[in-house]
């Protein structure tokens, strides 16, 4: 685990009460302050501070290599898996510091689910894919309970009607779009509070992409969703707020209409008008 003295000091200064959260009133899911991420000697993220409201969609956009995925992976501590990665700064989830000893990364990841760029169903049946999370976390009383969780999750992921007759078929046999919805169902099954999506539609065709976007729109009723996307149209379509990253820095953050219609920064404007990307 990557603990640095530097960050311990920051944490003392930044408790929940000190941190003002202007953007989301009382309903901030994540509050992050002064985030710096290093891969070995190389710094990937510089001093990012960002607040993420609950029950809404936050889109992270920017050219490739800008650090948006790295930032996303800090939110459920997936970067712990990378030996050389070092994270500094404050991450508060409902006011709790997720990098302190008090929060177990195993529980954190159940609360902050993740959907990846490439659909990655386990080489198991569709049923077992969805039941995997509830099983390991012990969320079902009995078989009927588990069946119900699986069904609800698949319904929420808008996949139930397509697979209800072949729950025993391998998850890898589904089409790309179905696989990605299966992965979303798998993430939902542990009843997370936040769902992180790392370019969830980049490997899919336009029709499958549209289904995923509809799904995101439905899910935001109950979840806080953070989505990384390289497609500005997608960000404009699905998100409530948008953050623009460039070269590891957060350039600008605000309501999506404002970012796309009246960006404050010139760099943002250049990016959304297609000068670079």
């Amino acid at each position: 685990m990557t603990m640095t003295k530097n960050r311990d000091i920051t944490r003392q200064a930044a408790t929940t009460n000190d941190v003002a959260s202007p953007v989301c009133g009382g309903e901030c899911k994540f509050i992050t302050r002064d985030v710096n991420v290093f891969y070995g000697e190389k710094q990937a993220i510089f001093d990012v501070s960002l607040d993420i409201p609950d029950r809404s969609v936050m889109a992270l956009i920017g050219p490739s290599g800008c650090g948006k995925s790295t930032y996303l992976r800090c939110l459920n501590r997936m970067n712990d898996l990378i030996d050389i990665c070092r994270v500094e700064g404050t991450f508060l989830l409902d006011g709790e510091d997720i990098y302190s000893g008090a929060i177990d990364p195993v529980l954190l990841r159940a609360r902050v689910g993740m959907v990846f760029q490439k659909p990655n169903p386990f080489p198991k049946s569709i049923y077992e894919n969805v039941a995997y999370g509830p099983r390991i976390h012990g969320l079902a009383k009995n078989k009927a309970d588990l069946d119900e969780i699986v069904e609800t999750s698949l319904r929420k992921a808008a996949l139930w009607e397509e697979v209800k007759d072949r729950l025993d078929a391998p998850g890898t046999g589904l089409s790309g779009g179905q696989q990605q919805r299966l992965c979303i169902a798998r993430a939902i099954a542990t009843r997370p509070e936040v769902i992180l999506m790392d370019e969830p539609a980049s490997a899919l065709d336009p029709i499958a992409t549209a289904r995923i976007e509809e799904l995101i729109d439905e899910l935001k009723e109950n979840y806080c969703i953070v989505i990384v996307t390289h497609s500005m149209q997608q960000a404009a379509r699905v998100s409530d707020r948008t953050a623009f990253f460039h070269l590891g820095r957060l350039i600008e953050e605000g309501p999506t209409e404002q970012i796309f219609t009246a960006p404050r920064e010139k760099q943002t404007q250049d990016y959304i008008t297609g000068r670079y990307g």
Binding site: M78, L108, M114, F122, I136
Partner: peptide
Amino acid sequence: EGSIGLGA
């Protein structure tokens, strides 16, 4: 990553 990301 998929498995760890679910909290396994």
